[in-house]
Every structure is written in C-alpha cells, then in structure tokens.
Design a protein around this nucleic acid. Structure first.
Lengths: 258, 258
DNA sequence: CAGTGGTCTAGACCACCAA
DNA sequence: TGGTGGTCTAGACCACTGC
C-alpha cells in the first residue's frame, strides 16, 4: 500500500483487517473525521474561522481537493459555514443570520418581532424512565427541567418544557435564562460549550388540558401542535429533550420536502 | 474570452450585459440547467439511466469533473439517483426503494403493512379562489378533486383531499386511482408524465368536524394533524394541492432537523 | 473484462474580501 | 495586493456491476 496514494501514507487504509465488511473509507471521509474531532475538542470555537483549506491540506498531508470535499460535507451538515473570500467558520446558533435555527413555526402572514419569553419554572429533579431513555441517562439521574412560554406580539404561542442532563448544565438558573438575549441554544454554546448539531422531531395533534389552556390563553380541549424534539451534539449524543405545544391558529409549522 | 477555459467556448459567459448584478454563473450550473432541460423534456424517462458522465462531458464539451458537479447537485435535490458501477438514473416515485417519498407519518412503534386505500370521491369542478392561487390557475379554471381515506391495519388514519389542474390530469378517474398499486405520485408519472420534485407543507392542529370524525372513526372535536401540501414539478410549477388530516394517536409526523 | 461512478492529485485561474 | 473559497481541467487509479 502507500504507493498509489503516497501522501496518505500515515492515514488508516481501513482495510487491514479482513473482516466481513471491508469498510472501505475514502480519504476525505477520514479527513472529515479528523476535522470533526478538532471541532468537537473545541480547537476552534463557534463563530471562529477554521484554518484555510491550504493549511488543512498541509497539516493532513493531502491535496486541497480532498480537504475541500471533507469540508463540503461538513458544510452540508451545517456544522461549518463557508464564506467566499473570508474563510470557513464554525457554525453557531448565535449570530445565525436568520432567526431560530430549529424552530419551524412561522406566522401565517407577515413578519413578526422577536419572541417575548417568560420562564415559568426551572428545577432540578431526577430523570423519569422516559426522560432517561431519551437522554441516554439512567432513571433517577439528575436532570434540569425548564418550563417557559414564548409570546409573539403579546400573544402566548408556545409553551415548552425542556429537560437537560443535570451534570452538563450544572449551573443553569432561571435568572440566567431570563437575562440571556437570543436563542437558547446560543446560551448553551456560550455558557456550557454544548453545541446542538441536529435534532429529531415527533409531531402530534393534542387537546389542551386545563393548565395548558390557561397558559396559552385558549379554551380547554383546543387543538395544539405537540412537538417533541430531541437535540444532539456531536457523535449523536442526545443533549436536550424538549416538548413544545404550539398554537396554530395564527402560525403554522412549515416543512420543505424534496 | 474563450482563452482561459477553451472548452466552454460556445456556452454563455453570462457576463456580457453590464447589468447591476453581474449574475456570474459557473459552468457546472449551466450544465446542470441543460441536463434539467433534457430531464424536463422527457429525453430520459423516470427510472431510466441518463448518459454516463463521460458521454455528457463529450456532449457539452466540458470535463468530466464539471459534469460530475452538475450531477452532484441534481442528486442532492433528489432529481436523479447515482448508483456506482451502474449509472445515474432519473428519480421516480415508483420503485422508490423506501415507502412513500413525501409521507412523513410513521407508526409510533414497529412496522406496518401497506396502506389500504378507499376513494370516496373524484369529481371535476371549478377552482375556488384559494385553490386557484395555490395552483397558479385562475378562479373558475377546471380542477379535479379527489377525496380518499388511507387505513393501516384496518384503522382509518389519513383523510385527504387532493386538487389537481384539470387540464393536465384530464382523464383521471376514481377507477384508475383505485386500480393503481403503489404511490399516487407514481401513477402521475406513468399516466400523465407529471413528476413531483419537491413540496412544501404547512402543518396545523385542528379539531375534527362531524364528517371528518366519522370518516376517521374518532370523536367529533378530536385533535387531528392538518397537513397542507403543495407539490411542484420542474421549474417550480405547482401541480397538486393536498390537504391531509392525520390521526396521531398511533402515528406521528417525523421530521429531522439539521 | 469493460464500463460506470467514486476518489485523489496538481495546477491554473476566477470571484470575493479586507487591509 | 494577498489570502480565501470557488471553478475547471486532465489524468491516474479504485470500487462496484454485469456480461
């Protein structure tokens, strides 16, 4: 080996063990993995530029094209943002040019100002079986629960509960959340170094119970959109379970299929 | 010009007119546009292979790499499917390896058999203002409306209405829809040459009215997921408006964010 | 075995940005 | 003006498929 692609001499050839699945992994995938490790280790902070393609190519002893393809995939996964003439930057939930990255609820017509947030509750508790399963914890592990309401133009629109691993988000308080400006995920990045990278949502229609109805100023039994979101950091580690109840009388959940 | 990239001599340089926006368009984008035209014109049918990268490169007087990048984008948009060692194929809703391409409703647990369909209604009528606006028609233009129920394991789960431009889908009958096996969008491809390429969905929670409740075997007022889908063919031409009501007591709408 | 898509390289040049 | 990402080419070789 090492003759056909001389510059990849010190990278895994990935076919040493004659296992059932040869598991051939192209060079650019390995480079992608290495960049991912640096990203994960915090070598470059959110919002910062990563080294130029040339630099990375030199560092990994690989051609620029190979680095390019690795970064292409990272960019496609929104882990990194390319800006021509400037560089490639670590994606962030702060200064995200356009609103909230994971919130797909949009007003039926027109624009709207920023959300007004009110924290209703923020407490430490022990993980229920369900929460533990979702967050890959053990039942009874410390968990932080936050409940809040988001309003648009004075109309309460979203009631959501968040569950966070207690160990990772040790110092989080209601005051801190109330004081913070911008997306909650930006706060997670800045204060706890936790970067949400992707999420899965399960959506249902449910009827509002008495308490929910009161908090969202709708009738009891009114239909609400239930959005259960599980957010992941790097390496598919689940880091937040969130259950939102959305009023959809003036807003709707927008999704693009292809 | 024509000196730096000699092989692109006969393709638009796209910067002839000194307009406000230079509108620079890279070669591979132009190639993509040309392939798109052929796709659109039906030069290759859904499921068929398009010419090899080498052939296309020769045809457009361009390097293989440039064609490759054009096809990469088409593949990313699901207009085309690459299969190593075999070729590149026009995407289709038939033989789509995995279930229904645009349906994001999945059972809460386990798998399930295919849907049982029952066509409730199929009639020709005149477009309402709302339908006309969605389908880019004029109010009063001929429109075809189909109503049906999909059941899983005998449980009615989806009630949907579809509105289709009457001119394009002239001969469509309830019998035809009932007889057809597989995705409805496959039927559209085979019988009418209409390929749905992307779609936008607006999702809300609503309460079932008396009729809807009866058809879905739920109580009146029960919360249902309302999914309004507008599907497009090539060139962003809207071709179908569909309004589905989903029961979400045993299923949920699944969405992945990144 | 030939043909297809997939990877990798090396080098040239272009578009964009900031200083 | 120099650096960054973006485009384009040409050629070599690899992995997969089917005859």
């Amino acid at each position: 080996m090492a003759t056909s692609t001389p510059s990849s001499a010190d990278l895994a050839t990935a076919d040493q063990a004659p296992s059932a699945t040869p598991a051939f992994s192209p060079l650019y995938q390995q480079i992608k993995g290495l960049i991912l490790q640096s990203l994960e280790a915090g070598e470059w902070k959110p919002g910062e530029a990563i080294p130029s393609e040339m630099d990375l190519a030199a560092r990994f002893r690989v051609s620029q094209g190979t680095v390019r393809k690795a970064i292409d995939e990272l960019a496609a996964e929104n882990l990194v943002v390319r800006r021509q003439g400037k560089g490639t930057f670590v994606a962030t939930h702060s200064e995200q040019h356009v609103r909230y990255r994971f919130l797909k609820l949009v007003p039926d017509s027109g624009d709207e100002g920023p959300a007004q947030r009110s924290i209703l509750d923020c407490r430490r508790l022990r993980a229920s079986a369900e929460v533990a399963r979702s967050l890959a914890l053990r039942t009874g592990d410390p968990v932080l629960q936050v409940r809040r309401v988001l309003s648009f133009g004075g109309v309460p629109t979203i009631l959501e509960d968040m569950w966070l691993p207690g160990n990772t988000f040790k110092g989080l308080t209601a005051e801190q959340m109330a004081a913070h400006q911008g997306p909650t995920y930006a706060l997670f990045e800045l204060e706890f170094g936790v970067r949400m990278v992707r999420a899965e949502e399960k959506i249902r229609a449910v009827a509002a119970d008495a308490q929910q109805a009161q908090l969202l100023a709708v009738d009891e039994g009114a239909p609400l959109l239930s959005v259960e979101r599980l957010s992941y950091t790097y390496n598919d580690v689940p880091m937040e379970l969130r259950r939102g109840l959305y009023r959809t009388d003036t807003h709707h959940y927008r999704n693009d299929l292809s």
